[in-house]
């Protein structure tokens, strides 16, 4: 087919709705909250002392961290879904979220006695954390990857990693409401490890399914 003929056919299809990644991603996030929420209430549920915990500093801070990483992942994904887009400012969000957690860790180390470091870091249920976050993140990861199929990434694996980070942040946000380990030391180690696993899974799946 001559290129000019192909252009005729493409131009005639101008009326087809352009598939934009951003609205699809927002819809997928809504679906992710519903799916992960349903799984959360069915399998875990909020911790019994959640009302009292909300009055503390450490418990609500877990949500600040997970939401900050989620926000950074949305910014990264929307950048990486576009061909040729620089990720510049989005990388700043990610750095900001990591810095937030690092400051909290520093604060924790400075304010509690050093013999309390290890018990807080080990926490009460690291295994549950490592298992629950990836499980709660699985339905969000599916929905988010499906939405980002509208993208045209230069690096499908990188977009997949952003999808994994976002799904992990959704899973971690719900898990945080169940988890009784509130120390930033615990969050920095176990939450990061669990979300990191989801991020790696996202990169691996994305490198296949996000090719275009």
């Amino acid at each position: 087919m001559k290129t000019g003929d192909l252009i005729e056919a493409i131009a005639a299809d101008a009326g087809a709705e352009p598939k934009r990644p951003a609205p699809a991603l927002m819809l997928a996030l809504g679906g992710s909250a519903v799916a992960a929420g349903a799984l959360f209430f069915a399998a875990l549920g909020p911790r019994p002392d959640i009302a009292a915990a909300l009055g503390t500093m450490r418990f609500p801070f877990k949500f600040v961290v997970t939401l900050a990483f989620g926000l950074a992942a949305v910014a990264l994904a929307l950048r990486l879904a576009r061909p040729g887009a620089a990720i510049g400012p989005a990388a700043g969000f990610l750095f900001g979220a990591a810095a937030l957690l690092a400051v909290a860790v520093g604060f924790e180390l400075a304010t509690i006695p050093s013999n309390a470091w290890e018990p807080r870091l080990v926490g009460r249920n690291a295994t549950l954390c490592l298992a629950s976050i990836p499980l709660l993140s699985a339905p969000p990861l599916t929905l988010i990857l499906a939405a980002l199929g509208r993208g045209a990434p230069d690096r499908p694996a990188a977009l997949g990693a952003a999808a994994g980070l976002l799904a992990g942040a959704v899973g971690a946000t719900f898990y945080a409401a169940h988890c009784v380990d509130d120390s930033p030391l615990f969050v920095a180690v176990w939450y990061t490890l669990a979300v990191g696993l989801v991020t790696i899974a996202g990169a691996a799946i994305g490198s296949r399914v996000l090719k275009w």
Binding site: I10, K19, P83, A85, R150, A152
Partner: peptide, 26 residues
Amino acid sequence: LLAIHLKRGTWDDRQPVGPWVAAIAR
């Protein structure tokens, strides 16, 4: 050209068209 068409939803209307299509071509 086909990819430009099917992925035109990824164009950011605050950005120029040239670099976007060049990236797709690359």
